[in-house]
């Protein structure tokens, strides 16, 4: 467990939670990233600018921290097929299941939504299984 970083994990998590509180309290919207993105593809009047601003803000937040000693690790170089397949599955899955790690995992579970708890257990369980199969059996 030498890679374990409990304090930065807790602090970063608290920032995510604070972001979700602010967006819901002030604007009435759920800070679920997959939903914020997919909502842009079915535009309604007055429902687009906050989405764009939030997504731009995410990149801006990272850009602000980069000169302050924080870094964004490079994504491991993998095959094009791997990233396209993973992205496609994440896109289909989050739209069909109505949420991802932020929408279900933080906002939904934080509201004590059983539906979100089930979704989180399922996607986390499947992801752990996929990694286990790769590590133990050399699949994928």
């Amino acid at each position: 467990m030498e890679n374990f970083t409990p304090w930065s994990a807790l602090a970063g998590g608290a920032l995510l939670g604070l972001s979700a509180v602010i967006l819901l309290l002030f604007r009435g919207r759920i800070a679920g990233i997959s939903g914020i993105l997919s909502g842009l593809f079915t535009p309604h009047k007055g429902d687009t600018s906050w989405r764009v601003l939030f997504l731009v803000g995410m990149m801006l937040g990272a850009a602000i921290l980069l000169p302050m000693g924080f870094s964004i690790a490079k994504v491991p170089q993998g095959s094009t097929l791997l990233y396209v397949l993973a992205g496609l599955l994440v896109g289909i899955g989050t739209k069909l299941g109505n949420g991802c790690t932020s929408g279900h995992g933080i906002c939904g579970m934080g509201r004590f939504s059983v539906r979100s708890v089930v979704a989180t257990v399922v996607f986390m369980g499947v992801a752990i299984l996929v990694v286990l199969l790769r590590e133990q059996l050399g699949w994928f």
């Binding site: 920032l15 995510l16 972001s19 604007r27 800070a31 601003l53 939030f54 980069l66």
Partner: peptide, 14 residues
């Protein structure tokens, strides 16, 4: 909306 996004991005990096 922008501020919430900034905090979220910072949380992801931190």
């Amino acid at each position: 909306a922008l501020l919430a996004g900034i905090l979220f991005g910072m949380g992801m990096v931190v």
